[in-house]
Simulated assay, not measured.
Amino acid sequence: MKPIIFSLILAFAASTVFAQTDTIKTRHTDGADADTIIIIKSKKGRKLKFGFGNDATQVNINTTTSDTTYTASKQPGFSMGLTFTRFDIGLTTLNDNGSFTLQPQNQFLNYRSWRSASVGFDVLQISYRFNSSFRIYTSGGFDWLTLRLRNNGTIQRDGDVLTFVPDNIQYTKNRLRASYLRVPIAFDFRTHDDADGRRFHFVGGLDMGLLLGSSFTQESKENGNQMRTGDYHFTKFRYGPFVRIGYGGIGVFAKYYVNDMFDDSPAQKGLRQFSFGMSVGW
């Protein structure tokens, strides 16, 4: 997770060093909604356009006056491209057969609620816009699940079932993690701009995920830092409904995966993941 974040920071820093960036609030001459677009001007004079939150399909530049007017067209149709949006950071909660209290066989997964996280973002998007207010889209991105365990002990990797071996070591970190490729299919409705130039978004759909990898990390005085990657029985494919509600560029999200969190481990049958938190970018 940390190398990915550092890479994104370096990429952003490089773009500011080698390019001139202008941020423009677009406006429509026909009274339609406006969008925020970033124009990056390279040293050779070429321009790259990135639309934040929505698919700004066309930019017309009028330089006949002293002020430059940028007009974004929102005609119906398909759009596709790279993006960095819907950055989610939230909490993860386990639902054990309809209860938020873990059953006895799952007590070894007792976790620190405020330190068990769900983090993700999208990097690719394909959408079809019906009109200025409604579109459907699918996207590709990454999602990380982290459980900070309370109990001292180790979850065995590559076991026949999910197995926890307790010990007397005091761990400052005892963390179970899984990473997923996330592919949502969403219905996105947005209102018209208000007096402040912002709008509400209401999004709902199906979130799907393909397992990329899992690991178990521990930190203690006795053993130092240890990270073990392998099979911890996380489900290879997860799916479930999600909703997003936002105003401007900030909102909230909630996801509930309807299939089991772990595969091939009968004692954990019915244990599912619920995540909620804040989201930036639309």
Results as ranks from 00 to 15, higher is better:
277 G>H: 08
240 G>D: 05
262 F>I: 00
245 I>F: 14
230 G>T: 01
260 D>F: 02
253 F>I: 05
249 G>W: 15
253 F>W: 04
245 I>W: 06
263 D>L: 09
241 P>I: 03
238 R>M: 07
277 G>V: 02
247 Y>D: 02
231 D>T: 00
253 F>E: 05
229 T>A: 13
266 P>V: 01
258 V>N: 14
274 F>I: 04
280 V>H: 09
263 D>E: 12
231 D>N: 01
247 Y>G: 00
240 G>M: 05
275 S>Q: 15
271 L>E: 01
258 V>M: 13
240 G>W: 04
246 G>E: 13
241 P>W: 11
266 P>E: 13
265 S>M: 02
250 I>Y: 08
243 V>F: 15
259 N>L: 07
246 G>Q: 03
229 T>G: 06
273 Q>A: 14
278 M>S: 08
275 S>K: 09
236 K>Y: 14
247 Y>E: 14
232 Y>W: 07
242 F>W: 14
253 F>H: 10
241 P>Y: 02
270 G>T: 01
253 F>M: 07
247 Y>A: 01
259 N>K: 07
244 R>V: 14
246 G>I: 03
229 T>H: 15
253 F>A: 01
273 Q>E: 07
272 R>C: 10
251 G>D: 09
263 D>C: 07
234 F>G: 00
276 F>W: 07
241 P>V: 05
239 Y>I: 09
231 D>H: 03
279 S>H: 12
271 L>K: 01
250 I>S: 11
236 K>C: 05
275 S>C: 11
235 T>M: 08
256 Y>H: 10
270 G>H: 06
238 R>W: 05
262 F>Y: 15
248 G>L: 01
244 R>T: 10
278 M>F: 10
273 Q>G: 11
282 W>R: 08
273 Q>T: 10
245 I>D: 13
247 Y>Q: 00
246 G>C: 07
247 Y>C: 02
253 F>P: 00
260 D>I: 00
232 Y>N: 00
264 D>F: 14
259 N>Y: 09
235 T>D: 08
280 V>A: 10
278 M>E: 08
247 Y>P: 04
233 H>S: 00
229 T>F: 13
230 G>I: 03
259 N>G: 07
238 R>D: 07
280 V>G: 05
274 F>E: 10
272 R>D: 09
241 P>H: 01
269 K>D: 14
256 Y>F: 12
266 P>Y: 06
279 S>F: 15
264 D>S: 15
240 G>E: 07
271 L>M: 03
246 G>V: 08
272 R>F: 11
266 P>N: 01
270 G>C: 02
246 G>D: 06
255 K>G: 13
277 G>M: 08
257 Y>P: 06
267 A>H: 06
236 K>T: 13
277 G>S: 05
269 K>Q: 08
259 N>E: 15
231 D>A: 01
250 I>R: 09
260 D>Q: 02
264 D>E: 13
229 T>N: 14
278 M>T: 12
269 K>G: 13
279 S>Y: 15
246 G>H: 04
272 R>W: 06
269 K>F: 09
272 R>L: 08
267 A>P: 08
233 H>E: 05
251 G>E: 14
255 K>H: 13
273 Q>P: 09
278 M>N: 13
241 P>D: 12
259 N>A: 04
258 V>I: 04
254 A>C: 06
240 G>V: 02
273 Q>F: 15
237 F>R: 01
242 F>A: 02
279 S>M: 12
281 G>S: 04
254 A>D: 06
231 D>F: 02
276 F>K: 13
